[in-house]
Design a protein around this nucleic acid. Structure first.
Lengths: 137, 137
DNA sequence: CTTAACTTTGCAACTTGGTTGCACAAAAAA
DNA sequence: TTTTTTGTGCAACCAAGTTGCAAAGTTAAG
């Protein structure tokens, strides 16, 4: 059974304020990755800086991970549970060129890449662009 | 034999102004991808908007390609010759976490990725992060 | 050659995303 | 309850990217 939003926050050592609960709720509802502006837009009276700091806290405490999908705008999505330890955002992101949504493809496994001599790989960031399942149907 | 800078511009149907020749020269010297600000910094008296438009023109006329390496800052690098037709930036970019340079790895071939059902792939953008050959030696 | 038409450049100004300082409110600790 | 810490709201700022406009430069037409 899913822990409550409040419990989710407590588990990650984040004090569950009203603001944070609201943001967490939105992130849970949201299937796609959202940006700070997206988030601001979901509130009637929004304080950008507070939301910014909320996202920052969530990221530091590993509730969410940051996504750079090549749009130039940072987006965020909830972490999977595994994020607890590694927090390496080790999955592909898909950007639909039609609906513009950014989706975490957790199930797709990362390929191995052969780098030239003397290059050391720390981490791979892959963004696939195309048409998503919803726009295709 | 390499065509002159002027000839390169004419070939791509770009009027070879003094400004553009200077920028092309810089891009040719530069091994790594550079941003607009990087470019501005290379001039004593620089007009950001002119350089911005120069890069834009170069990109439209396919002399250079745009790179989003996850830094949030757009960078540019000269196209290979093949860019004439496809202009799909079909190679991996490497970002060195030490020297911060962004390098086009033209020789590394792109992996194939299996997307879930109903996703159509148009294009893959891969950024590898780690330590580059220079920093490693 | 001279005027008209178009292109490029320089300058200022603006937009947007991201970020910070500061004071006040709220919560936790003493 | 008082002190200390933490969170929030507001204003302001920064950097990257971008645009409008007029002056300068180029090219084409008469």
């Amino acid at each position: 059974m899913q822990p409550s939003f409040e419990q989710q926050l407590i588990n990650k050592k984040v004090k569950p304020t009203a603001m944070r609960l609201l943001v967490l709720e939105i992130l849970n509802k949201e299937l796609n990755a959202i940006s700070l502006s997206d988030l601001v837009a979901k509130f009637e009276y929004a304080e950008k800086s507070t939301l910014f700091r909320t996202l920052k806290t969530f990221e530091e405490k590993r509730l969410i991970h940051r996504i750079d999908d090549g749009s130039g705008i940072v987006k965020y999505a909830l972490c999977n549970n595994e994020c607890d330890d590694i927090h390496e955002d080790e999955h592909i992101h898909f950007v639909c060129t039609q609906c513009k949504n950014t989706i975490c493809l957790n199930e797709v496994k990362l390929p191995t890449i052969e780098l030239p001599n003397n290059f050391t790989l720390k981490n791979l960031q892959i963004t696939a662009k195309g048409i998503c399942n919803k726009c295709n149907s």
